[in-house]
């Protein structure tokens, strides 16, 4: 059955150029929920410009997308993390060569209540705060106030990334409050004086204060802005990926070119992510 589908895809790939125009792309994108709004915007704009295109976008999580690539149920897997080594091996075993394309970057900012005088922290201090070793703001140069840690839910990709890159793979404190959405983190941090949380830079507004972060034991502190993330000065930045199998590259090339074009990257910036150039 799988082979039949595979053969059919191959045949379609050969037949396609003779019957349709080059710009028309019919594809499925599946995976990370972080990439979801961005992919939807790409698909919307592209379909408007190229009549007859049908690009469907599905969420479900990065792992789900890569799994779908393995079972050939999607053309593109969107992922907010790099493909894991064992996922790569699985694809290799299935005889599939995968191409990785970075479509944008996403910077994570650490935010506190606007009235909090603390405005910069080192990675080590952040690790202490989020794992529960540091529990009072006076331990990091602030007022005598209990630290309230807000985190995203354990299953979110943002949680995983923050845990891996800021907490050095250690687990969050059990007392951390887990919220289901970034909007909820902003709301809660804005109304809790001792709060600290983490959100994508696109979500920073006047209700919360973003913290400057140092990854060199406090020598230099960098403000989380799109410009700093673009110039690679800001360290808590993760690439967002599209993965596709090399055999279907021809079908989706116009779409991929569009994403990496000036226009595509303009959409990236407009949606609050960091462009690749």
């Amino acid at each position: 059955m799988k082979q039949a589908i595979w053969m059919f895809t191959l045949m379609a790939a050969f037949l396609a150029p003779s019957t349709v125009q080059a710009q028309k792309v019919v594809a499925k994108i599946k995976g990370s929920d972080t990439c979801l709004p961005l992919s939807q915007k790409f698909a919307e704009v592209y379909s408007q410009k190229n009549k007859g295109s049908g690009i469907s976008v599905l969420g479900g999580g990065s792992g789900v997308g890569i799994e779908a690539l393995l079972s050939s149920t999607t053309d593109i897997a969107q992922s907010s993390r790099k493909m894991k080594l064992d996922e790569k091996m699985k694809l290799q075993k299935a005889g599939k060569k995968v191409k990785e394309v970075i479509i944008a970057y996403d910077a994570l900012a650490v935010v506190v209540h606007p009235a909090n005088p603390v405005s910069k922290l080192t990675r080590e201090q952040l690790e202490g705060i989020f794992t529960g070793k540091i529990t009072n703001w006076k331990q990091v140069g602030g007022p005598d106030m209990k630290i309230i840690v807000y985190s995203r839910e354990t299953s979110s990709g943002t949680y995983e990334f923050f845990k891996e890159h800021v907490l050095n793979k250690k687990n969050f404190a059990p007392s951390a409050l887990l919220l289901a959405a970034t909007g909820a983190v902003v709301q809660s941090v804005s109304q809790t004086k001792g709060a600290i949380g983490y959100i994508g830079v696109a979500y920073i507004d006047k209700q919360v204060k973003a913290i400057d972060v140092s990854y060199d034991q406090g020598k230099t502190f960098v403000k989380p802005t799109i410009a700093n993330a673009k110039s690679k000065k800001y360290p808590v930045t993760r690439p967002l990926y599209y993965y596709h199998v090399t055999t279907t590259e021809r079908n989706i090339k116009p779409f991929m070119d569009f994403i990496l074009s000036k226009e595509g990257q303009h959409i990236v910036q407009a949606e609050g992510y960091v462009p690749t150039f």
């Binding site: 792992g63 839910e153 354990t154 299953s155 979110s156 951390a176 409050l177 887990l178």
Partner: peptide, 29 residues
């Protein structure tokens, strides 16, 4: 607040069973 800690007072965050199922089932393999 959904912090999975043993409740000791009503004035601290707790995590309930329905909230846990709703928040985690979508992403659990």
């Amino acid at each position: 607040g959904n912090a999975a800690v043993m409740p000791s007072t009503f004035l601290e965050p707790v995590r309930t069973i329905p909230a846990t199922i709703a928040a985690e089932l979508g992403e659990a393999p």
